[in-house]
Design a protein around this nucleic acid. Structure first.
Lengths: 338, 338
DNA sequence: CTGAAAGCGCTTACAG
DNA sequence: CTGAAAGCGCTTACAG
């Protein structure tokens, strides 16, 4: 059977409380010899405290949820961009002595269950739409601290971390304009529901305004997938014959577009320039290497965890969202128009 | 405060036991009207059972760990191949009513702590070396059911799921031999410690034997990363001037090799053919598209969970490891030698 | 068909 | 400085 606090206490000839204090590092209250003896017995017996007993008795579980949308019968929607985030979040949490519960969310009602059943201390929301976050009620959230990544929701129950999407798109458009492009297609998800895309669109337009140019509506709607980009790339030059460049809201989409363009006989960048957003590892592996807007993903994850643990341990009100810098990475997929 | 079983019981005017039975679907023992009344109250009050209380009281936690090596201060070692596995495992577990605890392991001693602190019902080990799995003791494992992915360890405390690595490499080598290649480099991690690589090497050699040829040792050691492959590709033709083909034990490595070859002025496949293993999404995005051995990753994850839950719920002894089929995907990175 | 009691393994005030 | 008691929210035999 499992070794318990009581077993250790009996063997050491002290009370459970004393063992508990030693195990939890509250050593000010126990004599050095006792500490040493208890630690020896703990090691010998291979005692591991029961996290469920602990979280039941204490107010804290030291468990953080990572909630990710998952289309009903489908796998988690872990985009290449989110993969790096998941790994980093686990690491930061581990460093802080927390554990990570990874949970796919197929229906809105599952959020409350996910947050409450394990008495989570906090949760990170990754990949949700702003409106989904807007709809989170105090009842569903309880006293769980919440942090949404890449969200522009104003829900006071959450805080957030995101990249400077506006500036990113501004830099992207500026780069293309400076190269001499004027007919630039903006490709991304329809942004009524995605704050990130909304910001990027605004930044994109701002670059035109700044240059004293007006952008002629060349909006193309596409999902953030390689397949969707490829399809878009195939018909791009027939639907937009005068276009000389494309700005895609995600690298994976941009890479698909490059493939579609190649398949329909156009070459990048000599016929069309393509610019992405994210700076995935993958973007340096494809041909031509993708020019893109880089986000500092490890930093994003680190700050997310730091912010979340801050509100948990400080029990302060959620702090203001944080916005991280981005920068242009010039590679081979953009050039002056012919 | 949190809504508890007792709150619901009081409001419904029944005992906690009755509410517990209804919540857990043991309806044979409760009258229909009572069931309905309780369910209404549960919904109204937004009652969510406490998983820690439940796992403390019951013998089962319905929590499964996913353990992944994580170099000390580093992020999880989630290779592109493992990403798909993580997503699929979460999904299968969720379908079965289980939750997933994702945990990076920086030192061997952490395994016992990870397995026992949350009273896991079971755990999936992803990305560990065979010898690390060999060293798992009954004391560290306790009564947790264990399944190792891609392991050839014979530790009776675990079971496993893996692809048919031997046949995969056999198919790969056969394909290259049939194209007319004779000078083929085998690139992968030094395989003293990795059963998967060992199997692939054996299958690779078997293809030569089968063809009545003897393979002249052309082994190159490399980590399973793009950077390592790229470096290898750069010096490949100077260290092995007569080579006409490379078989890499992973797509990400093969893709790096292609890049290194291109950088040093060689073209794939006309100068050198390159063949990988995994069939990552990425492998169809690069130029030339990579010929590779495909594993059925979703199936691997599904079977892993199925096997694991089987041993947990049936409480049988770990079953025998399962081996999944692989197949050759011919794309553009292989051709007859000049 | 329903309930009262004991107990899972801890931590938290509260005494001494 | 150390301990005995109560309690966290459930489930599990066992009675009725």
């Amino acid at each position: 059977m499992r070794v318990t606090l009581k077993d250790i206490a009996d063997e050491a000839g002290v009370s459970m409380m004393t063992v508990s204090n030693v195990v939890n590092g509250k050593r000010a209250r126990v004599s050095p010899e006792t500490i040493e003896r208890i630690q020896r017995i703990v090691a010998e017996r291979g005692y591991v405290p029961s996290a469920s007993a602990r979280s039941l008795a204490a107010k804290s579980s030291r468990l953080i949820g990572l909630l990710v949308p998952a289309a009903d019968e489908d796998s988690l929607m872990i985009s290449p961009h989110n993969v790096a985030i998941v790994g980093q979040i686990e690491r930061e949490l581990r460093k802080g002595g927390y554990h990570l519960l990874l949970r796919g969310i197929a229906a809105p009602a599952e959020v409350a269950e996910a947050l409450q059943s394990w008495s989570l201390d906090g949760a990170v929301l990754l990949g949700f739409l702003d409106e989904e976050i807007d709809r989170l009620t105090a009842r569903a959230v309880g006293k769980v601290s919440l942090l949404a990544i890449d969200s522009y929701s104003a829900n006071p129950l959450t805080t957030g971390v995101r990249s400077d999407d506006y500036t990113g798109a501004l830099l992207a458009a500026r780069h293309l304009l400076e190269l001499g492009h004027r007919e630039i297609v903006f490709a991304g998800p329809s942004f009524s529901d995605v704050g990130v895309v909304h910001e990027r669109f605004a930044g994109f337009q701002a670059a035109f305004a700044e240059a004293g140019l007006s952008w002629r509506e060349r909006l193309v709607s596409a999902n953030t997938t390689h397949a969707s980009g490829r399809e878009l790339g195939r018909r791009l030059m027939s639907s937009h014959p005068s276009a000389t460049a494309v700005f895609a809201t995600a690298d994976i989409l941009a890479i698909g577009i490059m493939e579609g363009l190649a398949e329909s006989g156009f070459s990048v960048p000599s016929d069309v320039s393509v610019l992405g957003f994210d700076d995935l590892d993958l973007s340096a592996y494809v041909t031509p290497k993708l020019t893109t807007i880089a986000q500092d993903i490890p930093r994003k994850a680190a700050i997310a965890v730091q912010l979340l643990l801050g509100t948990i341990e400080g029990k302060e009100h959620p702090v203001d969202p944080i916005t991280l810098e981005v920068r242009l990475i010039e590679r081979a997929s953009t050039a002056a128009p012919r």
